[in-house]
């Protein structure tokens, strides 16, 4: 993550080699990175970290499917989604670093924080035992994140607004990918339908948490920087309803998985699987703390 500009290597100069593709551009080029006036720096940093952690943790879960996906093409598709989310995480970590005003950069946040310092929602970290569970998680996560990013394009922070604008195009495809598979499996054979239904029932207890408002989220929404997750509930429910109806499935009626004394992922209170995820994610960076790549 330490190179300055990956886009310099592949420019219009390589015009003859069309297979390389052209027109690469840094997503934040030309965006004013000054902090917006009157916005609390600590809150902006904390808020950026939450959104970054969501993306990084889901990205990590997705890349764990590499060499395990049922088809080569699906594997590439999942890796693509993971890389999109990793890109979002990197930009958000960088923004957190700028807002914090210290010397921490994206690697410090990703690799040298402890489990309880991660503020991702618990849905993101759940181990994904099968493909149905994966697409169920992805459908819920991307529906929610897309609704969030759409509101964030009007953020008073121009960097968050730019990250959101870029992210919308990516997450729209991710949601579509997940929805396609939920419909295929739900409206497939008796066996695929059963597996899809089981997966949805296992994932659904973690849906409620997505719409709980953390104090930082509330203040950022009031400041016109972020969005209050509670305001996303109806829109997400409508999408879930539409997709599951196409899949001939019903929205699971399960009670939400409670946090600890009202504290959950956003507060750094995670499920058991998060510890293993963080350990794996950080193992190389912690073993070779001076390494660069």
């Amino acid at each position: 993550m330490s190179f300055d500009n990956a886009y310099e290597a592949i420019t219009e100069q390589n015009d003859a080699r069309w297979a390389f593709g052209t027109g690469f551009d840094s997503p934040l080029s030309g965006v004013d990175s000054e902090l917006p006036e009157g916005v609390d720096r600590a809150d902006l940093a904390a808020y950026s970290l939450m959104l970054a952690d969501d993306a990084l943790v889901v990205s990590h879960r997705l890349q764990q499917w590499c060499t395990h996906a049922p088809e080569l093409e699906e594997e590439v598709a999942l890796a693509n989604i993971a890389l999109d989310l990793l890109g979002q995480a990197r930009m958000l970590y960088s923004r957190a670093g700028q807002a914090e005003g210290g010397d921490r950069a994206e690697d410090d946040y990703a690799y040298f924080r402890t489990e309880s310092e991660f503020g991702n929602v618990r849905l993101a970290e759940l181990a994904q035992p099968d493909f149905a569970f994966l697409v169920a998680t992805l459908l819920v996560f991307t529906t929610w994140r897309l609704a969030l990013l759409q509101r964030m394009t009007g953020s008073r922070d121009p960097v968050l607004a730019a990250i959101a604008a870029k992210g919308i195009k990516e997450v729209t495809y991710h949601r579509d990918y997940a929805a396609q598979w939920v419909v295929r499996l739900g409206d497939g054979t008796d066996y695929s339908r059963q597996r899809m239904r089981d997966a949805l029932e296992a994932v659904w207890p973690y849906v409620d948490e997505l719409f709980a408002t953390h104090p930082v989220e509330r203040r950022m929404a009031e400041a016109g920087v972020g969005a209050d997750p509670a305001s996303l509930r109806d829109e997400c429910a409508a999408v879930f309803g539409t997709v599951l109806e196409s899949a001939t499935l019903e929205v699971p009626q399960v009670s939400p998985r409670a946090g600890v004394a009202g504290r959950a992922g956003r507060h750094g209170v995670h499920t058991e699987s998060m510890g293993y995820l963080v350990a794996e994610l950080q193992s190389v960076a912690r073993a070779y703390p001076e390494a660069t790549w």
Partner: peptide, 21 residues
């Protein structure tokens, strides 16, 4: 490989246009 045309198109996007081609 894909189960149907629609999936083939999506797989093509995922496999063959990753480098902005």
């Amino acid at each position: 490989r894909a189960a149907d045309e629609r999936m083939a198109l999506r797989h093509a996007r995922d496999v063959y246009t990753r480098r902005n081609e």
